[in-house]
Amino acid sequence: MGTATERTLRQAVEDAAAELYVWSLKDIPSDLRDALGAALERETHKVGRRILETIHTNVAVADEGNRLVCQDTGIAVYYARVGERFPLHPARIEEALREGTRRATLDHPLRSNTVHTLTRKPTGDNTGHRIPHVHWEFVPDWDGLDIKCVPKGSGSENMSFLKMLVPADGVKAVKRFVLDSIVGAGGKPCPPGIVGVGIGGSADLAMHLAKEAIARPVGTHNPDPDVARLERELCDLLNETGVGPMGLGGDTTVLSVHVEQAHTHITLNPVAVNYQCWAARRATAHVSAGGEVAMDRDA
């Protein structure tokens, strides 16, 4: 299969995927640790404080014992940024990501969650038809590859919402929808977490954007100042609802709101919400054209 370079790179990507999946489940990024720390400092509600303290203890126990932060190994979602001159075709990258996921699951071993959607028959290795899912971005004038692994648990993924709003109702309706969705989700998605919001595009693109939004480091802002303003406004509104940690009341309902947008049709106003729980696991590998891999927990 392929040239020596291709074989080396394919193996490097597979090894990176296997390592990323396990690592992300055990060692959460600094921005998330900081955000959870800041939440605890701010929280005034007694039950909310107790929950945030327990989350801190849990992260420390995972660090000390090299344990999984949360038991739900989720569905491994990958975000691949491929340079136009990276010498391995995306078809091979995808194959390597799948194989890495499978290997990590069997070798560690990790709990496998994937089943056939109709028969519910388990596959046993966290892969399946179209799983893991890869989000692609192609970068001109570059020869590298970045792979980000974001294992997504079902408790938070079940709290995903889409609405095709009326354009005349504008951004007001978007805000109301986000508020109603997150309040309605209550404690089910293990708050406080990251709310990903996708606006515009089409139905599929809106949810795709919401999913991209949750993969950003906590506290990063959309480069478009209007969108960034909406992020801050939504974050304040959501925290004023008082839903709190685990939906049991408190000042911290969300750690951050990330919004991604696309242009849309004149008669469309889609909004999608994808929730990422407090265990917002994420890890990245930078792969050079020569096959050197640099792991990056915080990207």
């Binding site: 989350i55 849990n58 949360c70 739900d72 404690g187 685990m246």
Partner: peptide
Amino acid sequence: LAIVGGAAALQTT
């Protein structure tokens, strides 16, 4: 009784 969701590392110990 509500548990702290996601805190499996701690609960396992």
